[in-house]
Design a protein around this nucleic acid. Structure first.
Lengths: 114, 114
DNA sequence: GCCTTACATGCCTTGACAGGCATATAACTA
DNA sequence: TAGTTATATGCCTGTCAAGGCATGTAAGGC
């Protein structure tokens, strides 16, 4: 109950990996454990932190729990970043084109990450 | 020398405040100390971390050192955020319009931040 | 009702980091 | 050269978080 900020939560590499794994869609805890190569309690604790920070949501299905992304805190990070964006926005580089891409299409079907 | 990632560096509130203070332009250490209400050694240590992470640059002028923003690591955070942006990009909300604004004009003349 | 599956929580240890104070360093001033 | 300003580093302490193991809990299967 340390009122953790989104940045503190994202500071942990394993937690960023979890988000990366959840980005394409829902995953069960067992799924994440297998993908992360970490102990199940370890993963559960990270999920707890992510939950408390509002970064993920849970859906129960029998014994299984399906985790998914809750984007709002990430949008806030995005907003914090906004004032700094002017530093690199003037250069029409690959990053900016990437931003354009992600803006135009939502589904992102053929998206292969991590 | 713990090979700190940008996210770990940003996890510290004081360091984010330092970046916020540097966003409009260069500042001396004394300036930052006054603005942050923290001990001078404390500020210097945070600046050290920010320097090592490539988030700020220093310019020497006599005894004074002027710190400024180095945007590249922040751009990388922006890039990491990109895949998640689809979660809120479909809603044409205020945030997205803000993104468009920062994209269209570089100077950011009539831009009132913080 | 009992065993198994799927997660969560508690306890413990270790490591890292923030912050304070004292002190070193570097440059300017008289 | 001695003193002052401006900043950096070292040392010490308290706090806190990550990760492992053991155990609790909830739902299904038999």
């Amino acid at each position: 109950m340390t009122a953790t900020t989104t940045f503190e939560v994202l500071a942990e590499p394993s937690r960023r990996r979890i988000l990366d794994l959840l980005e394409p869609g829902e995953r069960s805890v067992g799924d994440l454990v297998a993908a992360l190569g970490m102990s199940q309690p370890g993963v559960s604790k990270h999920l707890r932190v992510l939950r408390d920070a509002g970064l993920v949501a849970v859906r129960r299905d029998a014994q299984r729990r399906w985790y998914s992304i809750r984007p709002q805190p990430l949008a806030e990070v995005d907003a914090w970043l906004a004032p700094y964006r002017r530093f690199w926005a003037q250069r029409l580089d690959a990053l900016e084109r990437h931003l354009d891409d992600t803006r135009l299409d939502a589904p992102a079907a053929a998206d292969d990450r991590r």
